[in-house]
Every structure is written in C-alpha cells, then in structure tokens.
C-alpha cells in the first residue's frame, strides 16, 4: 500500500465517522443502526481497558439485534428517560486508520470522541462524555459497515446518571 492509498483510506474513514456522528446528533438512529454489519456489536465498557464483555459488567454491550430494540425503544412515544429528547453534539478527532487485523475486518479506525449532551426538562443536565473509540469496519458494496464500535469513556467506572442515547 503506498502513502497516497493510505491517506485515501484515512480520509474515507474520517468521513465515515463524521457521517455517523451527524446521524447520532440528528437522532436518526434507524440510519445509524443500518451502519452496523449484521454481525456487528456496539460496546461501551465499564472498566478501563476491559478485555472481556462476558465476565465483566459493561455500560452497554449489544449485538445488532439488541441494538435494534434500543433504537426502536427510542422511537416510542413514551420513552420517559429520553423525553424531552437529549440534544447532542459529537466531536470526532485524532483519527488514525490501519488495515484490519482479523478476518472480516478491513480497516481499524481509532479516534477520540467527545459528546456534549443537553437533556432538556427539569433536570436540564449539561454533560460531557469523552473517550477513545475504535471502529472495526468492513468494506461492502453498500459502503463501510461496523463490525465493532467500542467506546472507552475516560470515566467508564464512575458514578453516572442516565445514559439514554448512544454515544
């Protein structure tokens, strides 16, 4: 792979992350869900450097099917923990891309993500979620698909309030 191709992959990956962030900020969760491969997982660990989602609690560890329920729930007229709907602003930076190191993964993208969240209503929370994220991506005829999205929050093991929307 020559340098020009690497730069292409990196900018393509960066564009993908930005597009993903915009879907989340717009609350277009159905379209966000469609970015996941059928065998894709979304993981937000609950311990720094967590290596195992089965033997240790996670903030969230879901396959596409369970994530589908989460997204459907967010579309329900009486999903109280997300009403009024949280408003978010994602910022993705420090993006690097490397070839995938496992079967079915074409590209592994690392980045830093920050999500400012405002929950209107009586709580009127303003919160900042931040951490490193890893996207394992697969190239398909329809475009990149997420095989694993992992978000390692800097405060993953802290006391939290409700996290109603995906980061």
């Amino acid at each position: 792979m020559n340098a020009a191709v690497e730069i292409d992959v990196k900018s393509e990956a960066e564009a993908f992350l930005i597009a993903e962030a915009r879907l989340l900020d717009a609350g277009r969760f159905d379209e966000w869900l469609a970015l996941f491969a059928e065998d894709g997982f979304y993981w937000v660990p609950a311990a720094p450097g967590q290596s195992d989602p089965l033997n240790h609690l996670s903030i969230l560890y879901e396959d596409k099917s369970v994530l589908g329920m989460r997204v459907r729930r967010l579309g329900h007229p009486r999903v109280y923990s997300a009403q009024p709907a949280p408003r978010t602003a994602h910022l993705v930076g420090n993006v690097t891309a490397a070839p995938g190191a496992e079967p079915g993964v074409d590209c592994e993208v690392r980045s830093t993500v920050m999500m400012a969240e405002y929950r209107p209503g009586q709580a009127a929370d303003r919160r900042l979620w931040a951490g490193q994220q890893t996207h394992k991506l697969r190239r398909t005829p329809e475009g990149w698909r997420i095989v694993l999205k992992r978000v390692d929050l800097i405060d993953c093991d802290a006391v939290h309030g409700i996290l109603a929307v995906p980061i």
């Binding site: 937000v44 609950a46 609690l57 996670s58 903030i59 969230l60 560890y61 329920m69 989460r70 729930r73 999903v79 109280y80 923990s81 939290h160 309030g161 409700i162 996290l163 109603a164």
Partner: peptide
Amino acid sequence: TNLSSPASMILSDDIE
C-alpha cells in the same frame, strides 16, 4: 448490565 448500567433500558426509566 441490562438492569443496573447507566444505559439500562429498564432502570433508566425508573430513575427518570
């Protein structure tokens, strides 16, 4: 994880 995580789809509504 399902019941007691901050992202719980169940406890979050109770807490709200």
